[in-house]
Amino acid sequence: MILYLLCFILLLIGLYGVITKRDLIKIILSLAIMEYAANLFLVLFAYRKGGTYPILEEGREIAMMVDPLPQALVLTSIVIELGITAMLVALAVRLYQKYNTFDITKIRRLAG
């Protein structure tokens, strides 16, 4: 319960950054924090008390393994996040080249 709450607070801190900040870099960093929190939240569900990692070995009980399904899905999402971050950074760099600022309130003019 307290772990879920802390993880949720981490997500909301990221959301706060995305909503209030004007700096594009800060917005990208806040988005990354939200991604970490979401991944952590999913993996927190998978943990079993006293469990072991889900790799079969000699003398290892299946009954005590943690849930492998959220782990597999989070593995997928981490890789996608790298692509998203790279694309956001590319957009921000292009915007900086065009407007010479990272402040989103100054980036008003449409393309042209």
Binding site: V43, A46, I55, Q71, L75, I78
Partner: peptide
């Protein structure tokens, strides 16, 4: 945290 929660694959990728 992933390492603590017995997810070594995730820890490496992260």
């Amino acid at each position: 945290a992933f390492l603590f929660m017995q997810a070594p694959d995730l820890a490496i990728v992260q």
